[in-house]
Design a protein around this nucleic acid. Structure first.
Lengths: 346, 346
DNA sequence: CACCTCCATGTAATCGTTTACGAAGCGCAG
DNA sequence: CTGCGCTTCGTAAACGATTACATGGAGGTG
């Protein structure tokens, strides 16, 4: 089996291999009748074109590379989900790489020509490396974070705006001491969210208290640890804005173990699927995951069809897509045993 | 760029293309000195072999297909994680397909020859289809569930044993009325877990009460709904064994909204990463994900190297891998406000 | 009727490797 | 000195598709 090639189909249909190829690829220069005959033969013989041969000759693979740093954060799987679907809709497959070393995989995928385009997700590459054009002939797009060593187009949620919106929500509830568990120091995303948080505070006339900001690592574990630090302060916060949902979940976990510390409102960022099912359900800022995925696939596809001549000049200007604030129990529910409205709420 | 091929390297190193190929592929028939010279040239010219050409000629791609039905359940991403790492360790890449229609993708991947082997995860294919050999020349392995329309080797956790072990844990805590939110009706995994549950009950001399068994769908949503049904029974259960963690999380969410119904112990299955961070932390049965991934990759690789001559006869005998019971607050914590030890605990 | 155009198809080159086969070069035994 | 075997490498034939170019015939025009 699997020995049936264009030649067999050609012989069976009584045409040349060239015509078979044209018929199968919907070339306009083929008679409807011929096409039908070829398709019939192909089907009867159980013909499937060879991926390798096809892509060798045509210089395209129908595959997009998807590179992620981890799958620990549910945000990534959700992005994979939408991306694969978006890609499939336009006839593309996905080749996956989960790696810390994104740049190497980019070079490898692109060098071998095993993909037509690459989508880079949540990758902070070497901060030392200057942003440069990669010597690769494949369209490149980033989601979430802008890789440092590689110049690409970037689609990301409006992190600053989201953080601002969450912080304002907490302020509106009457909180004055709002802690922040930030992203890893040095990451663009972490900085943007922290920036939005600080701006909101200042706008409200509240000075930023550095002792209320503790660095996290976008993980439950770090959220747990950071919360213990925050709550051990002399004057602990009455609300905590965690840099993402995973951090917030760790935060909640820590707060439960220190009930004595009193009620604390908690908010996250991302709105991963579980945010609504943890307890208390998490107030958060929803990333427009579907749109991020679709826009990225679109852009990469554009690069593929138009040729690699896309102006990567825009690389420095990430496309910001707005998300929406999702308010749930963790900041709001007045009946909540652990996290009620703060006493001094106005 | 990316115009440098074996010919260029050959010319640069002063050898033939055949020798270049041999040198790069570590053929034993090439002098150490020649190999060094070739490698040097290749490196200096920035040569990367063409994936398409290589796999066209050599009939192997260095890629494994990974097919999953969904990414909603964190169990799948965790499996992806381990599988990609296991594959990468042996020099294989992963081509991902998220699809309900596994069989079609198997045929497509295998037919095109775009992968050397396929790992099928959590796929229940058409129950109508008779189990049959697929006319594909690629090694096929399943994880978690045995697809119905395709004969493959299967690696799965010992579902019955896990369910039994969880149920016994609940029995040991003194529960007599233990509800079960099962998997989707007709799924092998769901049936196995339910079987283990029923067997444990019978062993304890407790008759199986059909009104305490409600079908779920391995999702939070279904767990939520099923729990409402269970708790509305005349004589509701004091403990609930949910068929997986996602279901259990939905279950907890529902219980919180009906506090009046009284304390209920809850257990799940899988031990997804979040199980320890929800509230109350979930008692569950941990799937040996890493081992499932590694064994599957091993088996597929074996099939690839040995040739497709593996006796798929074993297809009917899934390899069961034991997991471990993980006890957490959701069944145990006596201080827990919602889910304490049952009153009648012995 | 000769000629030009255009459409559908066939011929053959090509993509960049791997690999079967053959040919040097060398050492060594007879 | 001849011949044989082994090692090391070059020549060229695949691998299975796509596609530039050539071709033959139908149809239209002057």
């Amino acid at each position: 089996m699997k020995k049936v090639s264009v030649h067999h189909v050609a012989a069976d249909a009584g045409v040349s291999t060239a015509t078979v190829s044209r018929a199968l690829n919907d070339h306009p220069t083929v008679t409807a009748e011929t096409r039908a005959r070829v398709l019939a033969s192909a089907k009867r013989l159980g013909y499937t074109p060879s991926f390798a041969a096809r892509s060798l000759r045509s210089r395209r693979t129908g595959v997009l590379g998807l590179i992620l740093p981890s799958l620990r954060n549910p945000f990534f799987p959700e992005l994979i989900d939408h991306t694969t679907r978006a890609a499939e809709r336009v006839g593309f497959g996905i080749s996956l790489a989960v790696t810390e070393n994104a740049e190497q995989h980019v070079l490898s995928m692109a060098g071998q020509g095993s993909v037509d385009g690459i989508i880079l997700v949540g990758t902070d590459t070497d901060p030392e490396a200057p942003k440069r054009e990669l010597p690769v002939p494949v369209p490149l797009v980033s989601i979430d974070r802008a890789p440092r060593g590689i110049a690409t187009d970037v689609f990301q949620v409006d992190n600053a705006e989201g953080a601002r919106s969450i912080t304002e929500h907490l302020l509106a509830l009457g909180h004055h001491r709002i802690g922040h568990i930030s992203g890893p120091i040095g990451t663009e995303v972490g900085a943007a969210r922290r920036g939005g948080y600080e701006r909101a505070l200042r706008s409200a006339g509240i000075p930023v208290d550095p002792t209320l900001i503790v660095p996290g690592a976008f993980s439950e574990r770090s959220g747990f640890a950071a919360t213990r630090i925050l709550m051990a302060r002399e004057n602990p916060p009455t609300a905590i804005f965690a840099a993402n949902d995973m951090t917030a979940i760790g935060c909640l976990s820590a707060l439960r173990q220190q009930r004595a510390a009193g009620p604390v409102a908690v908010a996250g960022f991302d709105d991963i699927g579980l945010a609504g099912y943890v307890w208390p359900a998490l107030t958060t800022y929803r990333q427009p995951i579907a749109e991020l995925a679709v826009r990225s696939v679109e852009r990469v596809l554009h690069g593929i069809t138009v040729g690699t001549a896309i102006p990567r000049a825009l690389a420095r200007a990430p496309t910001l897509i707005p998300g929406i604030l999702v308010v749930r129990e963790s900041t709001l529910d007045p009946h909540h045993p652990l996290i009620p409205l703060p006493q001094g709420a106005s």
